[in-house]
């Protein structure tokens, strides 16, 4: 190795204090500058949600579709706390347990965003659950709903099991992105099957390296998000890890940095692992001569 021939230049040499930039992410027709997608649920207050979104630096926020409370004009509307002129909203189908209901829910989300003139009106985070305790997806209904929504013109981001075959089927059905769960929604367990995630990334990106694959659900703290990005995920979608942190706004800042750190680490290419040590300081010129054997 020659130390006189650098193989990379420093892209941030002029702004040492700024957060390094990573390339924007393309999902279907949408371009996101942040690799973090934040959920808007579970916050103690709309104010904390708003400030957490600001701290995250994200430009995409998920929302759920629910029945209006009737005769309750005093209720504050979440949209008054979301800068929906700047943010791309991503409606979800959370709480749906069959394809038909999920499709109805997606269409309702689209109709609301059309009324708001928000660019998120053509996409949906598709969630079709199979079990109310684990909140894990029902892959059969999920695939059916994906096919129906793709046919209806939606860009479908599929919240999926961490199963490589299911992920492949969803991509083949036309999903704009497959979003495997790291672990159950709201569990904070991080990535429970790292090898399945590696296989999913490998299979979905084989001959299609720009196909967006997003880790959705399970992230508990910033290192989980960084690990996901290091594995090669294109983005991380999370909610509880920020909303249920002791200090959500600070955790949101941590997540912002973690996805950038993980993405850079992935691009940088990690060093090889070794069972044995390899000294960082030269052995040549050590001042003492050693006379004890290795124990």
């Amino acid at each position: 190795m020659s130390i006189d021939t650098p193989i990379e230049s420093n892209p941030n040499s002029e702004s040492a204090d700024a957060i390094p930039k990573v390339a924007p992410l393309q999902i279907g027709s949408h371009t996101l500058n942040s690799r973090l997608i934040l959920g808007s649920g579970k916050y103690d207050s709309f104010e904390t949600m708003r400030d957490s979104i600001d701290a995250s630096g994200c430009d995409c926020v998920t929302l759920a579709v629910r029945r209006e409370k009737l005769n309750d004009s005093s209720a504050r509307n979440i949209l008054d706390f979301l800068d929906h002129d700047r943010l791309t909203l991503l409606p979800n189908t959370a709480g749906c347990y069959d394809a038909v209901t999920a499709v109805r829910c997606a269409r309702m989300g689209r109709a609301i965003l059309e009324g708001l003139d928000n660019p998120g009106q053509n996409w949906v985070k598709l969630e079709v659950l199979g079990n109310s305790r684990t909140l894990l997806p029902d892959p059969f209904e999920l695939l059916k709903a994906t096919e129906l929504l793709v046919k209806d013109g939606f860009e479908v981001l599929c919240y999926s099991n961490d199963d490589p075959v299911v992920a492949r089927r969803l991509k083949d059905a036309g999903a704009a992105s497959v979003m495997p769960a790291g672990s159950p929604i709201g569990s904070g367990l991080g990535i429970s099957n790292m090898n399945n995630q590696r296989i999913i990334l490998g299979e979905l990106k084989r001959e299609d390296p720009d196909y967006p694959v997003i880790l959705d659900a399970g992230v508990g703290t910033a290192s989980d998000a960084a690990i996901a990005m290091q594995l090669g995920f294109d983005a991380v979608l999370l909610n509880s890890a920020v909303a249920h942190a002791e200090k959500p706004i600070k955790m949101s800042s941590a997540m912002r940095l973690a996805v950038v750190a993980g993405k850079l680490a992935f691009e940088a290419g990690r060093m090889g692992k070794s069972t044995y040590g390899s000294a960082s300081s030269p052995e040549l010129g050590v001042i003492s001569s050693r006379n004890t054997p290795d124990s």
Binding site: V65, R66, N92, A94
Partner: peptide
């Protein structure tokens, strides 16, 4: 008739 709106969600 269903009348729905957006709420916080992940």
């Amino acid at each position: 008739v269903e009348v729905v709106t957006l709420v916080g969600g992940g």
